[in-house]
Amino acid sequence: MSKPFKFKEFTLHQDRCAMKVGTDGVLLGAWVPIDGAVDSILDIGTGTGVIALMSAQRSNAEVIDALEIDADAYEQAVENFEASSWGDRLFCYHASFQEFMAEIDDQYDLLISNPPFYREDYKTSDTKRDMARFEDALPFEHLLVGASKLLSDQGKFAVIVPYKEEERIIDLASQVTLFPLKITRVKGTLTSEVKRSLLLFDREKKTPEIDELIIENARHEYTKSYIDLTKDFYLKM
């Protein structure tokens, strides 16, 4: 059984979630810019609920909604929300993004997604983990079309993707008039290859701010920038 993951201000039970708490979700939840103008947030594919809970800790947004298609993960996210200090602001929908998009008329100031993004052809015998990990459940095309519909006029959309997909995603986004505002490329160490891209989109075309984040100087020796980013959440930072 998977142990609960304890953060400084909340605990996540994750024994019924196919995708456990990982660096990608925490990185995205800590990195996404949230200012006082953000009053409504949607976390697409919430899993354990980690990004929605981080958003609640970081903001005064009145509405923080989350979406989860897997029944067990949905129930677990609801329990994690209710056990937190921000239960009155957090709500989870049990639906696919496609269903949600078709039924909801509301718009959000901020959309955040740590989406499934393994486009390779292999599958494992664990269907639930595959659904959480593979892009078929939620292709980027659907995610971007939906984001364009659900974003308020000044709204922003934040996502983490494999670096090798960055160009394709930016191109797809431009087709639904969403443009990169900020791009942070993530490397494990100074000498390793760029592995992930953190992308923030909005409706206005500007020159994006581009930077790089390195996670470790050496094994378990974190960089100052990574510590500064995550220290409000991780117990040991």
Score class of each variant (00 low, 15 high):
T23L: 06
D35Q: 13
C92R: 04
I34M: 05
D105H: 08
D39Y: 09
S84V: 04
S55V: 04
D35H: 09
A30V: 00
A71Y: 14
A37P: 06
W86P: 08
A83K: 14
E75R: 07
Y74S: 02
A83I: 09
Y108F: 15
Y93D: 11
L42W: 05
S113R: 03
V26D: 00
T48Y: 06
A30I: 00
D109A: 10
L28F: 05
N60H: 12
I64M: 15
A95M: 11
R58M: 05
V50L: 07
S96K: 08
L90S: 02
E99S: 15
P33N: 11
D106G: 06
N80G: 14
S96G: 10
A66F: 06
L67G: 04
G29Y: 04
E79N: 13
E68L: 05
I112Y: 05
W86S: 10
S84R: 06
N80D: 15
I64D: 04
L110T: 01
L53Q: 01
L53A: 02
F97R: 03
F81K: 12
V26Y: 01
M101V: 13
G47D: 03
V63N: 05
D39H: 14
G87A: 13
A56N: 10
D35Y: 15
V78E: 10
E68K: 03
S85R: 12
A37M: 09
S113F: 09
E79D: 12
G36S: 09
G87Q: 12
I104D: 15
F81A: 12
L27S: 00
D39P: 03
T23K: 02
D70I: 06
D35T: 10
W86K: 13
L111V: 09
I44T: 04
M54N: 01
L28R: 00
D109F: 08
I41W: 04
L90I: 15
P33K: 08
Y93Q: 09
Y93G: 03
E75C: 07
V38I: 12
Q98F: 10
D35I: 08
K20C: 15
A71S: 07
T46N: 07
Q98A: 09
E79L: 12
T48S: 14
N114V: 02
P33L: 10
E79I: 11
D24S: 02
L111D: 04
G87M: 13
D39N: 14
W31R: 01
A73D: 14
R89C: 08
N60S: 12
W86V: 15
A56E: 08
E62V: 07
E75F: 07
Y108S: 03
S84Q: 09
D72F: 09
S55L: 04
Q76I: 02
Y93R: 08
A73M: 08
G49V: 06
H94I: 11
A83R: 15
S40L: 06
D24C: 01
F97G: 01
Q57L: 05
V32M: 08
A73L: 06
I64H: 05
D39R: 14
A77S: 15
S55I: 04
A37W: 12
E99I: 05
S113T: 13
V32E: 00
E68W: 06
N80L: 11
D39F: 15
Q98H: 14
G29H: 00
M101G: 11
V21G: 04
V63I: 11
A30Q: 00
D43S: 11
E103D: 14
G49C: 11
I51V: 10
